[in-house]
Each structure stands twice: as structure tokens, then as C-alpha cells.
Design a protein around this nucleic acid. Structure first.
Lengths: 334, 334
DNA sequence: CTGGTGGTATACATCGTTGCAGATCCGCGG
DNA sequence: CCGCGGATCTGCAACGATGTATACCACCAG
């Protein structure tokens, strides 16, 4: 059926192993021989069977990427960057959608999925560090710092706390004093939400502004969640002059709802987000947000994972990297 | 290193092949034997090596998906749907980003990528039908109807022409007469752009409205392309009372630029798009657009491809399906 | 008692490649 | 003229699973 190395070898008049050597750029091959093999490959249209190579070599040259859902812009943009970074290093990426469900996350960590990949990039959403460690196999694993922090795991972290503080400080500097927060619970201290909320609180404290739990709205991190949370807030009669969505989707949903309700943005209510997805720049008004260093995260996570895969050190030092963030001031909160 | 069937067989006191039979749910196995094998699997934590299975069986249970870039919301949302549809049928999806470059598209059609997949879902952007046929190997291939139509290829089509006509008709019904089009060249008749432009022209003709090539703006199908095209249009002094972006990104970019320039939407200029990405619902004003049947496209494309893969008919009849579209009237063009 | 039948389990070859361990060839120093 | 080392090439086994063919058993009909 398919053309194999054997066919190429026969046509080129060399051994199967020599064909393999040519393909793998083995050093000591006579140029004329190499050429004969290459010609035969061309003539027959031979292509390496990656499955066979993987079986024999034990490497698949694929990285797994586990995230909630590609239809969420932030994940899609991150996935795109990760795929480019991996591609540049000779790896492919196999994406698995966890749908934000613990069972799916666990299955992706163990499961057959692993046997297809050399290592895993994991954006944990429901599992905590201990659960991850329990569920994970022995293959290299790098967490993308959305959520979990633990000294036993490799990860590339977003500076959730500092970046959220920076956003809040910016809003305060604009004269806002009643800043609503969308996407957290009053008590949260862990996870992206908790860390960002803590940064918010710290910035308030620094500015001597009273923290009001009534302004903290719990909701799903989606556009409709943000819209719905703002609606609740408006209906409750609470006073506020700014909204901080803990991610851009929330902020954009909130922005939409505010405008629908006839609020002036930013005159009456300023709006800020977190993530700097592309959509933020083109919203009307454009959205002030903080860029968490997506490209850097993708690049460094891939680099770190591949380093783990290719170095065979038994117990290398755990590495935790932090990406630089940057405030993007736009119209919604000048 | 890893646990193999052999290890399981030894522990269970059966032959390797019996373990294989248990795993593959072979019918005639004594329940006690089956249980012993399952216990051994549990005890050892055995997991099938999918690579080995693929090599032996010749199937990878992976579908390839070639698209321009996951950071484009429409593709991301489509990819998400496709992955879910494939997952439900026991297949995984390996995504390849072509970056809208012919060489990458060709490479994905041939290339080693193919040897990892049982079939390919392909969203062609630069290659035409003949080039696709020339480049493609023998494995099943289904086109997602963004661009190419050809009786020799399986595909799931968007009703580009009819849907664009529907959008245009809606704008005309709203009293608009000078409808600018973003994302095509006056002469285009093929490809998504050409087909949508043709639908637009046909709707104008139906309504007895004069077609004006000066209102057709060529640009990249991205938000910034749309913004830039509208800027050019405004600067040119051309008169227009509506803008039809040939996809939502264009329309959203245009919407943004119009608002920045102080135009009232929809009072002075109506805006409509194409794709119905989630963002469209939450834009301000929300975007009138047409939903091309994304979920249906994903579902049927996956179904068709898997049918091709699993049926061994040598020359099955080419199948071309069309997805139903639906106009979504929102604030930007009521 | 024999042969057939259907359930159950096994042996062996095989998928296409790469790792390992030679085999062969050649030129050159002693 | 031998022997040695480096360049060049080769054969065999193995990666871990599955397909095919077959062995074996129990049981029932003839």
C-alpha cells in the first residue's frame, strides 16, 4: 500500500538502514549514496511513517494542551501562540478540551491522551495541586499559571495579584472610588479569581479606600456572566463608578449591559478587564485591560516543557517562571 | 519501563493475545478470565499504547483539521465544535495552522501530518480545487466550504451566496441604498469573498438598486482590516448608509472605526456582518449578522469524514452538503 | 463411540521504523 | 605488505500492539 523505507532501499540499491540514516542525517554517508536515496524518495513519493517512528523511538514529538474550551478567545489566542512556539521547535500540539470539568481534566492528565504526547501543558481550572500530582503520570508536565501554585510543579505563572492591583490602582487614579469586581466571591483567596481579588483589595488598601464586599459579584467567566452580574448590580441599587471584570469576557459583557441600560462609559462608569484579548482593542469604547504576557507565557511554557522532555535528568529542579504584564489603557477607563 | 500487555498477561496467567482480546471486547472470553485480566490491568496500571495500536492497525483515530489561525474567533469556535463532534465519535483532532499561506496548506495536505491522521478536514484559503486535488494524498478529505467548490471533492458548504443576499436584502428593507462592502474586490466571483459579493449584487439587482464598485473595499479579513477599510472609505468622501463586512471581524472593526469617527450606528450607518461569532452578540451596538450554521457544519463534516474513513468503498459518490443559515437581526442594523 | 460444533485461548507473524553491533572498504604509517 | 582507524554501509532485533490461523475443550447428535 504505502511506500516504505524498504521500497526506497530497493530502488536506490542500498539497505533499508542506509535509507533510515539518510533521513536522519547520519553523518557518514557518501554524497553520491545520499543523492541516490533522495532521488528514490522523490521518485516514489516516500514519506516517513511517524507512527512507526514513534513506536520505535518512544517519542511522539507531540505536546498535549489541556484547556477548557477553544471557543473562549483567551484560550484560543493562547493555543495559537503555543502551537506556533511548538511548531518552531519541531513539535505538534494536540489539544484536549476539558470543558471545565474535573473528570475531563483528570482523564487528560492520565489517560490514553498521555500516551500520544511527550509532555503536557495544562491549564488547570478545577483540580488543585494535590489532585494534579495524584492524577498525573510520570511524563513531563508544565502548568500554565491560571490557577494553581505549588512548589512541586513546573509552571509559568501570570502575575495575577500584581496585575490586578495595577488595574485597580489605575481606576483609583482616575478618581473612581466604588469599583465593582466581577467574577469572584468575597472570600476567595486562591485561584485566578482569588489572586486577582486579593490584588484588588491590596490596591484599595494602599489608597485608603474602604473595601465593600457588596461590590464583589460572583459569576461565570463569560460574556453573559458579566452582563448578568452587572444587571444584578444595577438592580440591587448599589452605587458604583467603575467595574473591574476579572477577565475581558466579563468586562465586555458588563460593558455591553451598561450601554444597554443607558449608562455612559467611561463618564458614569469606567470598565476594565484582564487578558487583553484582541477583541478588547476593538470594543466600543475600547477596553482598558492588562496584558498578562500571553506570547511570553506560550513561548516559555513550550520551552520549559521541551527542555524537560529532552533532558533526561531524573529529578531536575522545579522551575516556576513569571511572565511580565502590561497595563493597556484605553477608552473605557482612561 | 512502561507496562505492556505482556506484563499484564504474565500477571493474569494468560496469553498476550487474550489480554488484547479482553481490551477489544472480544466476545468469547470466560467471565472469570476477563475478570482476572481486568484485575491485572488495574493492579499494574496498564494503559494501551496507542502508537503501537496505530502502527499495527493502520488507524490513528485522529482527524486533521487545517485552518488559518486559531486566534481568529470564527475558526476557534468552529474548531471547538469540530473537536466535540469528533470526540463524541471516538476521534481526536489534530489542528494545523496554515497561517493563510499556500505552502503551509500544501504541506498539511501532503506531508507527514497526514500520516498521523485518518482523514482531513480542510478549510482552504489559498489553494484552488485543482491544487488541492494535486496536492492531496489518498486519504479521505472533506473541505469546509469557505472557498472552493468542485464536483470532485467532498465538502460541507456554507450558503455564501444566499446568506449574503439575505443580509443585503435586510439592509435594503431597512431603507439603506448605499451599502458598502468590506473584504472583496469588485471583480471577485469565486471564493468566500466572491460568492458573498455575488449574493450582495444579486440582492441589489433584485431591489433595483444600482451597484457601485466604489463601495467595494478590498482588505484583510480581520478587525484591523475592517477598521482601515472604513477609514479609507470615509476619507474618500464616498457616501454610504450601511456597511456589510463579509465576515464579523471586518464588521466589528468597521463598527469600531465608525464610532471613533463619531458616526451614529445604526442611525447614520447600519452595520452587518457574516459568521455570527459570539462577540457579535456583545458588541455595542450588537451586530446584525448571519449565522452560517457552524454547529451543523462541524457536525456534518465530522460525520461525513468518519463515514469515508470507516467505509472502504473504493469510489464512493462525492457528497456535497449545504448548511442552513439564519439571519440574526440586532441593533447595528435593525 | 465418533464427529461435528461452538466457545475459549493461544502462537506466530507483522505493521515501519530505529538502535546496536558489526562488516566492509580504503588510505596510510611502519 | 600488514595492520589499524576512520568512513561507510549493513543485518538483526525490537518497539507494543493486532490479524490470522489454529489448538483445545466440552458437549451433543448420530
Amino acid at each position: 500500500m504505502a511506500v516504505t523505507m524498504n521500497d526506497v532501499a530497493r530502488v536506490a540499491g542500498v539497505s533499508l538502514k542506509t535509507v533510515s540514516n539518510v533521513i536522519n542525517n547520519y553523518e557518514f554517508i557518501r554524497p553520491t549514496t545520499r543523492q541516490r536515496v533522495l532521488d528514490a524518495i522523490d521518485q516514489l513519493g516516500y514519506e516517513t511513517n511517524l507512527t512507526a517512528r514513534s513506536l520505535r523511538s518512544g517519542k511522539t514529538s507531540m505536546l498535549g494542551l489541556v484547556l477548557a474550551d477553544l471557543s473562549v478567545p483567551y484560550y484560543a489566542e493562547l493555543a495559537s501562540d503555543i502551537m506556533k512556539a511548538a511548531w518552531a521547535r519541531g513539535y505538534r500540539v494536540l489539544v484536549e478540551q476539558s470543558g471545565n470539568e474535573a473528570d475531563h481534566e483528570r482523564a487528560a492528565l492520565q489517560g490514553q491522551f498521555r500516551s500520544l504526547t511527550d509532555g503536557l501543558l495544562f491549564i488547570p481550572l478545577t483540580l488543585d495541586a494535590q489532585q494534579i500530582i495524584d492524577a498525573a503520570g510520570k511524563k513531563p508536565l508544565v502548568l500554565l499559571g491560571e490557577f494553581v501554585e505549588d512548589p512541586r510543579l513546573d509552571m509559568v505563572l501570570i502575575r495575577n495579584y500584581e496585575a490586578a492591583a495595577a488595574v485597580t490602582t489605575h481606576l483609583l487614579a482616575g478618581g473612581r472610588r466604588r469599583i465593582a469586581v466581577l467574577g469572584a466571591d468575597d472570600g476567595d483567596t486562591t485561584g485566578s479569581g482569588g489572586l486577582r481579588l486579593s490584588g484588588y483589595k491590596a490596591a484599595l488598601a494602599d489608597a485608603g479606600v474602604q473595601y465593600d464586599p457588596a461590590l464583589v459579584m460572583r459569576c461565570e467567566w463569560r460574556r453573559d456572566g458579566g452582563a448578568e452580574a452587572v444587571a444584578r448590580l444595577l438592580d440591587s441599587g448599589a452605587e458604583f463608578d467603575a467595574v473591574f471584570g476579572l477577565n475581558d469576557a466579563l468586562a465586555l459583557g458588563a460593558l455591553h449591559e451598561l450601554l444597554v441600560r443607558g449608562k455612559q462609559v467611561p463618564e458614569e462608569v469606567a470598565v476594565a478587564g484582564f487578558d487583553d484579548i484582541e477583541e478588547a482593542r476593538f470594543a466600543s469604547p475600547s477596553l482598558t485591560t492588562v496584558a498578562p504576557g500571553r506570547a511570553e507565557i506560550a513561548e516559555r511554557a513550550v520551552e520549559l516543557l521541551i527542555e524537560r522532555i529532552e533532558s533526561n535528568m531524573a529529578v531536575p529542579k522545579v522551575r516556576q517562571l513569571e511572565a511580565a504584564f502590561e497595563l493597556r489603557v484605553r477608552q473605557s477607563a482612561p
